[in-house]
Amino acid sequence: MKAVIIVKTLLGMAPNCKKVTSFLAEYVEGTLPEKVAKQFEQHIGMCKCCGPYFDQYRATINLIKEGQEVKIPDELVEHTMTFLRNNANFSR
């Protein structure tokens, strides 16, 4: 087991996939320390699992951000203000 870890480290595969996927959010956010980000990128570049997983994580975020637009009702402000004038004892 130890040998596997050493070989992986030499190949730049450390840290392992579990660790790497736990860093995804921080990596995307740009808050990983530089050294860890480097290791992360090395791993992502080599790993058959984390590579596609990272792409999909990013694609998901992009899809979320594209999102659906919300139509703001035209009378929204008046709808609230009428309600407030009736219920909110303004003092002035």
Binding site: V70, I72, P73, L76, V77, T80, M81, L84, R85, A88, N89, F90, S91, R92
Partner: peptide, 21 residues
């Protein structure tokens, strides 16, 4: 804080779209 209607109207105007979304 003084319960000023104009101030609330400004607030409603400014924050309604974002809050509604």
């Amino acid at each position: 804080l003084a319960g000023d209607e104009k101030a609330f109207e400004l607030l409603v105007n400014q924050e309604s779209p974002r809050l509604f979304r």
